[in-house]
Amino acid sequence: MDLSIIIPLKNEEESLPELAEWIRRVCVENRYTYEIIMVDDGSTDNSWDVIEKLRITDNNIKGIKFQRNYGKSAALNEGFKAAHGEVVITMDADLQDSPDEIPELRKMIVTDGYDMVSGWKKVRFDNTLTKNIPSKFFNSVTSRVSHIKLHDFNCGLKAYRKKVVKSIEVYGEMHRYIPVLAKWSGFKKIGEKVVEHRPRKYGVTKFGWERFVNGFLDLLSITFVGKFSKRPMHFFGLWGTLFFMLGLGITLYLIIAKFVDTSVALTNRPGFYLALTSLIIGMQLFLAGFISELIARNAPGRNTYLIEDKIGL
């Protein structure tokens, strides 16, 4: 199968028929074999009924219905599990992503050799104050931290080689960081394409300002997990050692200073409390690293690694 098109959605009953027909037209014109996987993330309108009706007239349409709202990451993760296409494309259900971008996105994966291509909505129709400015700041910070040169990490329109989506797990609100997850999994050829951003035709946006706060917290989590999930002692042990050595150094200085000037009690010196605090923090961090190491060594996936190829086995 050439394409799997995954569409996470919530309360988008009005846009689904038009979106499905648009995707069908593009795929037929380009002679793609394809499937459309619509993942209903706990809709309270008639979205699932619409998906069932669309399935009757088009066997390429498949549906997954959550019992309640779990979030976009969960919807994408289930879609990735169900995908069979050699190229997987994700897009939002609100018609702000154009299916006309599909052929070029697929070409960048199949012909140009990219592992993943992220859309860049260079010209947007969102409110500048509440979305554009925070989004640019968020993308700038994420790019610097992850060392991935993308302008729009949160764009829903993305294309992946099949192996990428089968090698990553998207959870929590990590859908913003799929490029980062892909990079930590060893897929380094990540590209970007300017895509059309269309005005919303139906309904209202499902995301608020809190996504930016949660986004930065998720970035810290994914950066730590990506680097230190199999060796947590390298992080906690390093900082624990630094704090402990700082506290020990201050302690030695205070002891020497006490012999030089016996008139001032150690507990009356500010350095005494700084040394005590540093020693305690150092020991706590070191202990946290030791416990994390024990947990990591007993985790089911402690020796699970992504293997790109084998020969002679």
Rank of each mutant, 00 (worst) to 15 (best):
K107N: 10
L217S: 12
M245F: 14
I7F: 03
Y160M: 09
P103N: 00
G85K: 03
F125Q: 11
I5S: 05
G215P: 01
K166V: 14
G172L: 06
F228G: 04
L287G: 00
E78Y: 02
S167T: 10
P8V: 06
A288G: 02
M108K: 15
T277V: 10
Y32E: 06
I295V: 14
N77H: 09
W22S: 03
E101H: 11
H84F: 11
V50A: 06
F290K: 09
A83S: 07
M245D: 13
M91R: 02
P99W: 04
K81V: 11
N154P: 00
F212E: 04
A75Y: 03
E35N: 08
A83T: 01
V213P: 00
R198K: 13
K230C: 02
D126V: 15
K149H: 13
M38A: 05
T277P: 00
I102P: 06
D126R: 15
V26P: 02
D94A: 02
R200W: 09
R24V: 00
F153Q: 11
I109L: 11
R68I: 06
L16Y: 07
S140F: 14
Y32R: 03
V165Y: 03
K107C: 01
R144A: 13
Q96L: 03
L274I: 08
I311A: 09
G186Q: 08
L217A: 12
D2W: 02
S135H: 04
A288M: 09
L238K: 15
